[in-house]
Amino acid sequence: MKWIFCGMVVLSVLFGALNGRMPQVSNAAISSCAGAVELVLSLTGAMCLWSGVMNVADKAGITRGLAKLFSPVLRVLFKGLPKDAPALKAISMNITANLLGLGNAATPLGIRAMQQLSKENGGSDTASRHMITFVVLNTASLQLIPTTIATLRLKHGSAAPLDILPAILITSAVSLCCGLLAVKICERLFPGDGTRPDKGGRLWKR
């Protein structure tokens, strides 16, 4: 990230000098920071509202209910984990938190899931196939209501800020399936990593 940040600023100065657009670059440098505050201000309300509503949902047991709903699917994805593994419970809680847009809650739950999976894997420094499946699940966007996007679209005068919701859900689903499919294919192609056999996430004895 530091290289992108530095690179963008340095390139801007270079291009600005070459294109003779230094005054514009200078104005942008001076005024953009106010834009960031404005952006955060326009999002703060929505972030508070939805965190609040979703916290009520969490306390009402919706998270737990949804987590139960997913566990059959997860059992297929994480084949080889015992049925009542603590890792499976943490994974399903992490996924529901992501679905509800509870980013603050999802990360600690995900870390707990990773710790459980690491225990299953004997604390190795090589990712097990379950860890890979879990991380790829988390690099896909699972959020059901894109609140930030809807807020920004409305602010910019969109007639129906949520009209892109079906497109978002289809795109997310297809991209997630492709990611998981790639994981499954790689599992077959590279069952171990050459030095340490992957025993399907179960404790591997040295």
Partner: peptide, 9 residues
């Protein structure tokens, strides 16, 4: 700031 400068240049 970085994106703003990048765009303006």
């Amino acid at each position: 700031t970085a994106v703003g400068m990048f765009k303006a240049s």
